[in-house]
Design a protein around this nucleic acid. Structure first.
Lengths: 210, 210, 210, 210
DNA sequence: CATGAATGAGCTTTCATTCAT
DNA sequence: GATGAATGAAAGCTCATTCAT
């Protein structure tokens, strides 16, 4: 696994706990502002104000503006990793149908709670150097693997029929992202619960044997 | 239909044809650069250089940097509208299965050829005023309608079975977008043709009767 | 007398009459605009538009933006010189009281008709090189001389009593300028005619022998 | 009285005292430069340099270039108001002749010390919006009132004879301005003291009974 | 003669970053 | 630890001027 090098980011404080706290404030503020007005219009001054610090203070905990983007990036990847682990733990012992249901549920709810992060990741993907893009590509693969594994297991056990598993998994991952990216569209006809239910049903009807 | 008010953008030239040409150059350059490095890092100087004009000349045809974003935005909407019309014209007389196949084909190929525009739209969506977002929301709806209409027609004629038509259409639209947004992922396992074939098959297996 | 070197200003046209016509248009437009919004905000494009020419055409008759200022400057000086000559001619044969009355009348009416030029001269004075300032200083002296001569003549002939002639003349010249510079103030209580009458009376009461 | 809304001008500093100090520096520098070379040729970079600040720092205390003009404007009005108050206080108890002498003396000395401000006001008057011009029109009226009141008092007490009081006051105010506006002319024949003496004598001879 | 597209130096302004207090 | 004054490179934009048509 590619290690997220958060420690690369400069700080003047020796107090690790404080650093982490302050950075969390900063990241939250940044995600918020960027989701609202875009990266271009989000300056350090505003991020500082929104995190309840002064500029000078903010720079105690963060080296550059880019660092903030980078930290937010890492934060997103971290949450995705935790999600993956959580889903895997949760589904390990369940039978495939149930596992898939729960996995989809968790996954979409994650995007629901975390939409600013999702939007941010899609916006910023392109502006990072390939080497920094690697962790997200990798994590994205892991996410696909979660669903692929469940489906494959179901195929083996005979509950699911053979399909293009990759594509089905890809569709699930995509439709989760879309709940964040296109909430302005889907919210017209769906509540979160209905979206999850309908989508789950659709996926199951697609891969269920008989 | 919400009219795209491109004429709002200031120009010093009385020659309409020229204005349109130059703006096309500018938009292309901007889409290219923004898709590649993000908005933040795309300055006017670079857009000018990439459009093969000098800064001063660029400002003959465009009022502000924001205008460029706005024009690119409109350009994207325009292309989407043309696509919708094209698909509708093409599929009107076909039987539903065939119509759906062709519609998906055109739609995904559109994103393939136009991925920079798609990426741009997703990146910028958030930074526009609600009133400017309206046209894209509307056009997006029209796009959904294209697929909804075909599916509904197929249901009526008995080729397709009843499902959550909205969601199926939403999935189709989303997976087209994703071919542009996540080409770095899907290109690992799919060529354009294979992606289209596989996805079409998946959709058909989902909604076909028997 | 310092000659106004209008011929210094570049033109591409060999047709002297046309050049003069066009320049008059330009000067008028420039004076108008500058009086209205100030020099800073008066660009060549606007001067061109206001003179009913295109930029390119304007540059056929004028070398630089500074040239326009310079021409307007010269135009002002020229008009002042003509005024001086006119007053001198008119008053030569009159008896001092009458001469003074008529001189003041002409002088203030001149500022009334020409206020934009007067305002312009006061504004621009400072921004010219000393050598270019010379003609206006000289012309201003001549203007003072007009009044000084009349008053002196009146003293000699016994109609006027001895005073600080310089200062009286200076006051007359100044109050003419002020009718242009502070028209927003004086117009509250005075019409042009009343201003002339009152001021003439004041001057006469000041210098008349009993 | 129209309140000078200096507080409208943007600053990034929370330290009011500092803001005032820095702005004073800026205004002084601006008046100096503008009086010397005209507004057109006075750029922000020069104002910054002349105020002993860097550009970035200057923009901590001032929002735009226009703001500087506006502040200088207000500064001029403020000084004029203080002058008016000072003269009124000084002359209240004096007998009219003495009062008038002192008022003229203070007034002209004020222009002598403050000529850059006077020149600036005359140059910029025209380029302000009517609403911004209001305070200066009003202050100018108050200035006239100072002299009108003294003269009227003298008429009542019998020291001065009836004349067009408005016009006499207008002449006094104008000749004060002229000492600043046309110092290049008057300094040829007058020192400050001689100008004041001569002018005072002229005014007194004009309005004194017998 | 007239037009207006093109140029690019230079202007105003912003903003990430530093550092004395 | 916290503050915000100061810096200056660089961004967006303007505008006098040229020149091909």
């Amino acid at each position: 696994m590619v290690k997220a090098e958060v420690s690369t980011v400069r700080t003047f404080s020796p107090n690790n706990g404080l650093v982490e706290d302050r950075r969390r404030q900063i990241i939250q503020a940044a995600l918020h502002l960027i989701a609202a007005r875009g990266i271009q219009k989000t300056g350090i001054r505003e991020i500082a104000r929104a995190s309840g610090m002064t500029i000078g203070n903010l720079y105690h905990y963060v080296g550059t503006r880019e660092d903030i983007i980078y930290l937010a990036f890492n934060y997103g990847i971290d949450r995705a990793r935790k999600l993956i682990k959580e889903i895997n733990d949760l589904c390990e012992t369940l039978e495939p149908r149930e596992a898939l249901k729960i996995a989809i549920d968790r996954y979409i709810r994650y995007h629901h709670a975390n939409w600013e992060g999702t939007v941010f990741l899609y916006k910023e993907m392109g502006s990072f150097s390939p080497s920094l893009r690697l962790p997200i590509i990798e994590t994205n693969s892991h996410l696909h693997d979660v669903f692929i594994r469940i489906i494959k297991k179901g195929c083996k056990s005979g509950v699911f029929k053979a399909t293009d598993t990759d594509l089905v998994a890809g569709t699930i991952v995509s439709m989760g992202d879309m709940w964040a990216l296109k909430r302005w569209y889907f919210k017209k006809n769906y509540t979160l619960d209905k979206y999850i239910d309908s989508f789950t049903e659709m996926v199951l009807s697609l891969i269920s044997r008989t």
